[in-house]
Design a protein around this nucleic acid. Structure first.
Lengths: 350, 350
DNA sequence: CTGAAAGCGCTTACAG
DNA sequence: CTGAAAGCGCTTACAG
């Protein structure tokens, strides 16, 4: 059980009612802007509210009315700028709708996710926006949340699908289309030997991006080599380490579609170590458009998901769900935009 | 007034009590872990809680007990990685203490800050952590918050000091010391003509950093030239634009202590445009250690405030205040660490 | 147009 | 060790 912090004496409806000689009910009606109240009574009450510095106790009101004015936002990694932007977008849209954001971070741990969901649910959010931790399972989330609040899944799918899945809304990035755009862009530049670099195949976003890449390659009538698909952790460091594998076989690629920007920046490091100049001798693209992407050497061609707008969209989606609890669940796919920068050069002339 | 969202029928203490033939009071005692309850009764109740999928209604409990288990976190800019890290640190520490984070973003607007504080206060947080919007005034914050919850001020001071100020705790970065460290580091490298570049003098953090720079220069017995103090907006772009001003007079500087990393990165661009190689022909330092700092060309010597740890510290400070509402207010200054990278080269040999 | 009364889901003395 | 009763700060039919 959590600690308990006593609150100082606060001004309540009783104080206001007593202060201007009306009943609690009348004060309540004034607060809620009811047209039933006499103008003069209203003015007197409003003056008294100001005078005593009254603050509405929304928790009490919510209890009585059996409503909620909060939405839980559960994120796998707030320190990641992508999710920070997303959170800012969520909070802005929720605030505009009169809701408050209950924040919870899981640090990519399914166990912490369970704890965070449990704790936030005790505060009775009207809905939940969840960007799941890496290996979070559908069954566990379902057990924690049940039917207590509608859930919107953002960015990642959960492991181990379930029948109840159908009840959850989803907002996903168009990973497949994005990777296809990047691949087609490199094809247009004249590349034929294009690798797909980084990420792990057990991540749904990685599979989707790879599918988009494969689709574009097939569409161009091109075959791919096994060593054009290098898996590695989605970090700069691991990407740099795995760079040599790209050049291990015959038909070395002249370009790579990278799982994300971090991987692309790491590949740049790895290329430099081999004496290859990214953006001159080798072309590459990222995914996410993190702040560093525009500053890389060279600046990185990448895909932007406009995380702040996604946040606003996620907020809209849960709020709509609250209006229509029974409507069929919605699977929304957010568009992704190609941002062309210097890193996606034409192939070197051989 | 905000919208209202009806909540579905939930399992309450009454359902549990009825379900296993005890009174509500007994169930409550079980929930709160009271030793007064018979072991068998406890086991029966716990089984029933599980069976019905009971979720504790903390809002109702808080209302009855007149307690609160939430802390409001009000940030000027969550999209800024520094504050995102800070927020992650706050949330982690609060969660560990059984508290929940009520998030609010102001987007650097004092007007939105007022609205956000008002809205969050209606949810009855036990305390508030506020990183104020740029031109937020003490009087306005006081009017919004009053004595309804203890406030911890983070990162920036408020405009227009007030007697009541003394009631607020503060957690500030050691800006002055940090800038002094950077300046002394450049002095040790052999620089004598060192500029202070970027930021606006009406920002308290900028004044403090400039004071640290001036202190180090005085300490070394060095005078400074007027054109060694260039003001500009704390953005990359504006910094790049203002670069020529550094070289407008006689005694051009060989190094610059920059207001922050964004400014330093902008100055790098500006130097490149003049044909000067940062880290070779000109030395510079930043402030913040943003992710791009380590990746700059060259990597940027800078100061780290360890934002995530600051978040944990801020959470500790408010939680301590809740235990001791009457204790004298505390002004905490968080240390800042110099991170030496290639940008702070020795002066060119002339 | 205003007030008295009941109740949201919990907790907490107080009896027994 | 357990239960009946009152009350946290609100809202909402229902009278008048």
């Amino acid at each position: 059980m959590s600690s308990h912090i006593p609150i100082g004496r606060k001004v309540t409806l009783n104080d206001i009612a007593a202060g201007c000689g009306v009943s609690r009910a009348t004060v309540s009606l004034v607060l809620r802007g009811s047209p039933l109240v006499n103008k003069l009574t209203r003015a007197r009450v409003e003056e008294e509210l100001r005078r005593q510095g009254y603050v509405y106790n929304r928790a009490a009101a919510n209890l009585r009315r059996r409503t909620s004015t909060s939405i839980a936002l559960v994120l796998n990694d707030l320190a990641n700028p992508f999710f920070a932007e997303f959170a800012a977008g969520v909070d802005e849209a929720l605030a505009a709708a009169g809701f408050v954001t209950l924040l919870g971070c899981t640090g990519e741990s399914p166990a912490r996710e369970q704890a965070v969901l449990g704790s936030l649910l005790e505060h009775g959010p009207a809905g939940i926006i969840l960007s799941p931790a890496e290996h979070s399972r559908a069954a566990d989330v379902l057990a924690a949340v049940g039917r207590r609040a509608p859930l919107l899944l953002f960015n990642r799918e959960l492991g181990g699908a379930l029948p109840e899945f159908a009840h959850w809304d989803q907002l996903m990035l168009d990973n497949q289309h994005g990777a296809r755009l990047a691949t087609e862009h490199l094809l247009e530049r004249g590349h034929r030997r294009i690798a797909f670099f980084g990420g792990h195949h057990d991540s749904s976003s990685c599979r989707q991006r790879h599918a988009g890449y494969a689709e574009a390659m097939r569409g161009a009538g091109l075959r791919t080599e096994p060593h054009w698909r290098i898996e590695c952790a989605p970090t700069r460091l691991d990407a740099a380490h795995h760079t040599p594998a790209l050049f291990a076989g015959a038909f070395a690629p002249t370009a790579a579609v990278c799982y994300n920007d971090a991987v692309a920046l790491g590949l740049m490091l790895g290329l430099n170590q081999r004496g290859l100049r990214p953006g001159h001798d080798f072309a590459l693209t990222g995914f996410d458009d993190i702040a560093e992407a525009a500053l890389g050497m060279p600046p990185l061609t990448t895909l932007s998901a406009a995380p702040r707008e996604r946040g606003g969209q996620a907020a809209e989606l849960v709020l709509e769900r609250l209006q229509q609890p029974q409507a069929a669940s919605r699977q929304t796919v957010a568009p992704v935009r190609l941002i062309v920068r210097e890193s996606s050069c034409p192939p070197p002339i051989t």
